[in-house]
Computed example of a mutant assay.
Amino acid sequence: MDTAATLDAVAEELAEARRVLFITGAGISADSGLPTYRGVGGLYEEDLTAEGFSIEEALSGPMLHQHPQITWKYLAQIERTCRDARPNRAHQVIADLERRGTAVTVFTQNIDGLHRQAGSSDVIEIHGRLHHLHCTRCSYETEVDSFSDLELPPACPRCNALVRPRVVLFGESLPQMEMEQLLRTLDAGPDMVFSIGTSSLFPYVAEPVLWASEQGITTVEINPGTTPVSPFADHRITQGAAATLEALWQRLR
């Protein structure tokens, strides 16, 4: 089936879908100018940092506690990249579907907050959100627009303990509440499951697609490359996310 015919088929099913789960990775933010390579949310491609660590070590929970200045250095690099990014048509179309009346849940690996900026309300940010900061000791938390005015590593204004972004660093556990939210979404029975712009290398990202395939739920993958879930997708569109979702939206209209 060629791309146009695949888009027609997906749009036809999407028009009838009552509940849709979108699983998104760094590729959906590529048209917002964000990189898709290594690091938390994508940023770093060198073998070692200036300090001689892999980026996975620098952006890990143990490093944050032992040498917070190192972890915060690379978190700040990521934040500078994300700071001026704005939602692209992929984010907007997903939000438009919700406004159109479809029950949409977004399960995203991204920490850039762009799905929420676009207007999606049911967003499971499994890796957290970069601009949401909290104290490692007390209950202090805050949302910031940028890290530019922070003294790094920042100290809590209440108890002077270390403040960190509410993101999942390497070596840390996934948030239980968000995983339970995903399970509730699957239990509700989505009519379609989309995998968009993710390499699907982590089991918790691939398994919802595999589960949907086993349940006979329509699965769609939008990704220029091949991933572990590609053989389980009913429809594969090997193009970028923004152009593909815009093409689907035009068909729905």
Rank of each mutant, 00 (worst) to 15 (best):
R164I: 08
T238W: 07
D145W: 13
L133A: 00
R166Q: 09
V168L: 02
N160A: 15
T219K: 01
G128N: 07
V144G: 09
Q239Y: 03
R137G: 14
G240C: 11
A242N: 06
H132Q: 12
T185F: 10
M179T: 05
R158K: 12
T238R: 07
V209R: 11
V229S: 03
E180D: 12
I237V: 14
V144M: 14
E180C: 13
L130R: 01
V220E: 03
G197Q: 05
F232P: 05
G197N: 05
G197L: 05
P203C: 14
D145M: 13
S195P: 04
P228C: 04
H132K: 13
R236Q: 00
S199R: 08
R166A: 13
I222D: 00
G197C: 10
L186I: 06
M177I: 15
L210F: 15
F194S: 01
L174G: 01
E214S: 07
E207K: 08
L182A: 15
A212M: 02
C159G: 09
A241G: 03
N223V: 01
G197T: 03
P208S: 10
E172C: 05
A241F: 09
C159D: 00
L150D: 05
R137Q: 09
P157N: 12
T185N: 10
C156V: 07
A161P: 03
N223T: 06
F147R: 01
L186A: 15
D149P: 02
L186R: 05
E207L: 02
Q176V: 10
A161C: 04
R137F: 10
Q215P: 11
S148I: 12
A188T: 07
S173T: 07
S173A: 09
C138D: 01
P165W: 13
V144P: 08
L150V: 08
V168Y: 13
P154F: 03
L182N: 04
A242P: 01
C135D: 06
C159P: 02
S213H: 06
M177W: 12
G216Q: 02
T226D: 01
V168A: 00
P228Y: 02
L152C: 08
I237R: 03
G240L: 02
M177P: 14
V193S: 08
T226A: 14
E207S: 05
H235Y: 11
Q239S: 14
E178L: 00
W211D: 07
P175V: 10
P153R: 04
A155Q: 13
Q215C: 07
H131M: 08
Y204L: 12
S146D: 11
Q215N: 04
T218R: 12
H131N: 14
R137K: 12
T238Q: 10
P190C: 05
H131G: 06
M177Y: 09
L201R: 08
R166H: 09
E143A: 15
D187E: 13
T238A: 15
E143V: 15
S213V: 00
